[in-house]
Structures are given as C-alpha cells and as structure tokens.
Amino acid sequence: MKSEPKYSLTLNIKPSETEIAYEHFMKKLSFETDVADLLIDLKKGYSGITVIDVRDELSYQECHIPQAISMPGNQITEKTVEMLSKDQVIVAYCWGPACNGATRACAKLSKLGYKVKELIGGLEYWRKEGGDVTGTLAENAPLYWTYKR
C-alpha cells in the first residue's frame, strides 16, 4: 500500500485568498484574449476590434490572419499608428507563446493611448486551432520564427 506524501510541491506556496485570486485573474483577462474568442468575434463580423500582426513584413506577407493589418512592432511610433482608432480594441499577435513581440507592441500602443489585448499563443496557436490564414504561403508558411544567418 502506497502512503500519501507528506509534502506537496503544488501547495508549497499557498493559494491566494479567493477575492485576491479573482482580482488577479480578471486583471489578467483584461490584458489578453484567446484564439477561440477572437475567432468567433471575427467570424461574427464584430467591428470593435482591430487585429495587428507585429511580425516583420515578409512573415506577414507569407502568412497572417486575414483581417490583420501589418504593423511590425519595431516600427510602432506615434506617427505610424495614426490610422488606428482609439475607439477600438487592438488585438496584437506575433509568432507564438515563445515570442514577446506582441507584448512589446501592446506596451508601446498602450503608452500611446490605445486599448490593447495580446492574442494568447499568437499565430502559432491561431493556426493550430484552425483559424484561417492567408498570404503567399498561407498554411504552408513556417510555423515558427527561426534565426537566419
């Protein structure tokens, strides 16, 4: 007979009080959205969202979410975002969960006064969860960014 362990790695740090946990998770949700929610909103034609692809222009040309506009993160400035509406929520994405390009873009955009959310999992999860893509390579495009020498 196997005895129950006396120590739990999971519970080594106690969980938060329920009210604090609720505030944390609600705040987290205010910063991000998932593929399913965005996919449904775009399929329904919801007009309160602008989707931006913050990867480089070539990657965008090869494969992107059909409704997305290209706005490479390293080119986001007050001047380059003038055409974006501050009345809409901007959903930014990059390659995938190992890429912080969308996080950086959201930081820049929020500093400029835009309401933003980051797409959890980026284009990688969008494609894995069956979201449509378009571009010169579309679904045949590389799934991940790779360093080219």
Rank of each mutant, 00 (worst) to 15 (best):
M1P: 08
K2C: 12
P5R: 13
K6V: 11
Y7G: 01
S8T: 11
L9G: 12
L9I: 11
T10F: 13
L11P: 00
L11Q: 13
N12T: 07
I13M: 08
P15E: 15
P15Q: 14
E17K: 07
E17V: 03
F25W: 09
F25P: 00
F25S: 04
S30H: 13
E32A: 14
E32T: 13
T33C: 15
T33H: 12
D34S: 09
V35G: 05
V35D: 05
V35Q: 07
D37T: 15
D37S: 15
L38I: 11
L38M: 12
L39H: 12
D41L: 11
L42H: 10
L42P: 07
G45K: 10
Y46M: 08
Y46N: 14
G48D: 11
G48R: 05
G48H: 07
T50F: 03
V51R: 04
I52T: 00
D53I: 02
D56R: 05
Y60K: 06
H64A: 06
I65C: 03
P66W: 04
P66A: 10
A68S: 10
A68D: 04
I69R: 08
I69T: 09
I69L: 15
I69F: 07
S70A: 12
G73M: 01
G73E: 02
N74C: 03
T77C: 08
K79R: 08
V81E: 06
V81Q: 05
E82W: 04
E82C: 11
L84N: 06
K86Q: 11
K86C: 03
D87S: 14
Q88F: 03
I90Q: 03
A92S: 10
Y93C: 01
C94W: 01
P97D: 13
A98E: 09
A102L: 01
T103I: 05
R104P: 00
C106Y: 00
C106D: 01
K108R: 04
K111N: 14
L112M: 10
L112R: 08
Y114T: 03
V116I: 08
V116M: 08
I120E: 10
I120P: 00
G122P: 01
L123K: 04
R127G: 01
E129G: 02
G130L: 09
T134P: 00
T134A: 09
G135A: 06
G135I: 02
T136P: 01
T136I: 07
L137I: 00
L137M: 14
E139H: 12
E139G: 06
A141Y: 02
W145F: 14
R149E: 12
